[in-house]
Design a protein around this nucleic acid. Structure first.
Lengths: 147, 147
DNA sequence: CTGCATTCCCTGTTCGGACAAGTTTCTGGG
DNA sequence: CCCAGAAACTTGTCCGAACAGGGAATGCAG
């Protein structure tokens, strides 16, 4: 507790910073028992949801970076949650698969995300949540309009 | 453009993630010409605003980490924006000062933050901004209540 | 005053994120 | 067909963030 890094400059930007940090820290804490680090779970969830795909597809969907993805995949592969296969149709590409072992984590990861959502929205009413989501979407569209 | 990493899991959490990433990326871009990396400007702004202080004070105010602060200060010191002096009253502590050189950056950094704020809130009305800030504050308090 | 917990800082390590540069492979216009 | 440009991946580098561990100085209880 006990911070107000807000020296007057950009109250909303400051608030975004603080929310982002707190949210990420909470996500890290909830994912801790799964052995995953924040970010890795997004890769796995994408693979679980959309099936095997190229690294570049993961990069696009997660709005990540190719070099980040290379290392993230490498780490997931090292712990056996993912494996790579050459694409049969494009020798530049590798297809990333979620392993059987990874599916044993699925419930745990998804319940961690459910818990994250629950803690994030707190005791907000359904209609309030809708407003919050609209607000975040507004911010996102402003930010992406700024390129 | 073109992402919706939202696989149904935690729409608000997903949105927080995306806003956080876009906001940080925008901050990085705006600070680029100052030579600062996102996070360093917060240290400098705190020093400019509150004056020389111990590392632990910076850590507390920015809700950062002691080891992160050590390295951040070291980098700022290497480029001459900050210098450290032993505390006269506590030999464990070092007092961090903003250098003269750093003050030449102040206008640039502060206008980058103003621009960040401007782009973040976009064309929102004053009352809408108040709502947005209230929403972010709500989220922050939920998150910090979750510890 | 002594002993012990606490505070403050530092180092090592790991990871996500981003940028730059380079390799291999593909594709499309000529 | 051929080649220039694009696409997919990789590696190197740097940085913020977080955790573990540790050393030095301080402060407090007894």
């Amino acid at each position: 507790m006990a911070e107000q890094p807000d020296f007057g400059a950009g109250p909303i930007s400051s608030a975004v910073f603080r929310v982002a940090r707190a949210h990420k820290a909470l996500a890290a804490r909830l994912l801790r028992e799964t052995g995953l680090r924040p970010g890795q779970e997004l890769v796995l969830m994408t693979l679980w949801h959309d099936g095997p795909q190229r690294q570049v597809d993961l990069v696009d969907k997660l709005d990540s970076d190719a070099s980040t993805m290379v290392r993230s995949i490498a780490r997931l592969e090292k712990v056996g949650l993912v494996h790579k296969e050459p694409s049969p149709t494009d020798r530049r590409a590798t297809i990333v698969h979620a392993t059987e072992a990874s599916f044993h984590l699925r419930d745990e990861v998804e319940s961690a995300w459910a818990e994250l959502e629950r803690l994030t929205v707190g005791s907000m009413s359904r209609s309030r949540r809708t407003e919050v989501l609209a607000t975040l979407t507004d911010l996102e569209s402003n930010l992406s309009a700024a390129e």
